[in-house]
Simulated scan of single mutants.
Amino acid sequence: MEYARAYTEDDNILVSEEIKESICSDIIKHLNILTPIVEKYDTFFHQLIYHMRYKEHIAIPDKIGSPETMRKKEIITEQPTLSNITKSDQIALDDFLNTWNKAVSSL
């Protein structure tokens, strides 16, 4: 959530108040579902977030910086995979990823 707020408050990125509210409210909707999943798959989730951030740096380097501006330990170029994930957890993660990608693509 802090990342979403910081991301929408970056002075170098012009984001309307409507889009800021949409991004934050969409993410808040997922928190109750995501929190237990994050706790269960903590290491994987960190790697997934780093991978998502890496993809954002590749997609819009002029707005958020090139991948080289990221910390070395946070550069995850290959999407991590998670074995033994339940189908319902996978659906929840995919839904969140789609919500996040929709928010980022509107910037």
Rank of each mutant, 00 (worst) to 15 (best):
T86W: 05
M1C: 12
I60M: 15
Y7D: 03
S106W: 06
V38K: 11
L14N: 11
S22M: 08
E2P: 01
M1L: 15
I28Q: 06
K40E: 11
L97E: 14
A59F: 12
E9V: 02
A4E: 05
K20Q: 07
P67T: 04
K87W: 00
D94M: 09
V104G: 04
R53V: 01
T86R: 14
L34A: 07
T69M: 12
H57D: 12
D94S: 15
H30W: 04
Y54P: 04
T69L: 15
I13L: 07
I60Y: 15
V38R: 11
E39Q: 10
T35A: 05
S88C: 03
I76L: 13
Y50R: 09
R53Y: 02
R71S: 15
Q47N: 12
K73G: 08
W100M: 14
D95Q: 06
L48F: 12
I33W: 01
Y3E: 05
P61E: 11
L107G: 01
A4Y: 02
L93Q: 10
K20V: 07
I58P: 11
S88H: 05
K40L: 09
I27K: 03
I49T: 00
I19V: 08
E78Q: 13
S106D: 04
I28W: 03
I58Q: 15
K73N: 08
V15R: 00
A6C: 10
I19N: 00
H51I: 01
A59E: 15
S22C: 09
Q47L: 09
H30N: 11
D11F: 13
T8A: 07
A103K: 02
I19E: 02
S25Y: 02
E56D: 12
E18H: 09
T43S: 15
I76M: 14
N101L: 08
K102S: 07
K72G: 03
Y54Q: 07
K87A: 02
S16G: 10
E78V: 15
P80K: 10
S106H: 05
K55I: 04
A59Q: 14
F44D: 08
A92H: 01
T43D: 14
I49H: 07
Y3H: 13
F45M: 11
K72Y: 09
Q90N: 11
I76E: 14
S16M: 05
I33H: 06
Q90I: 00
D10L: 15
I85S: 05
A103L: 01
E2C: 09
N32P: 09
I64C: 07
Y7I: 07
L93V: 14
I37L: 08
N98K: 13
A92C: 00
P80Q: 13
L93A: 08
Q90L: 06
S88N: 10
E56R: 09
A103V: 11
S106G: 02
K63D: 03
I64F: 12
I13D: 03
P80W: 07
N84R: 14
Y7C: 06
M52I: 06
S25E: 11
E9M: 11
K20E: 02
Q47H: 10
T99G: 02
T86P: 00
K87Y: 05
S105P: 01
N84A: 06
W100Q: 09
K87N: 03
I13G: 02
L97Y: 09
L97K: 14
R5A: 10
L97R: 15
W100N: 08
T8N: 00
D62W: 08
I60W: 10
N12F: 14
P36H: 09
A59V: 00
S88I: 13
I13E: 02
I85N: 07
D95Y: 03
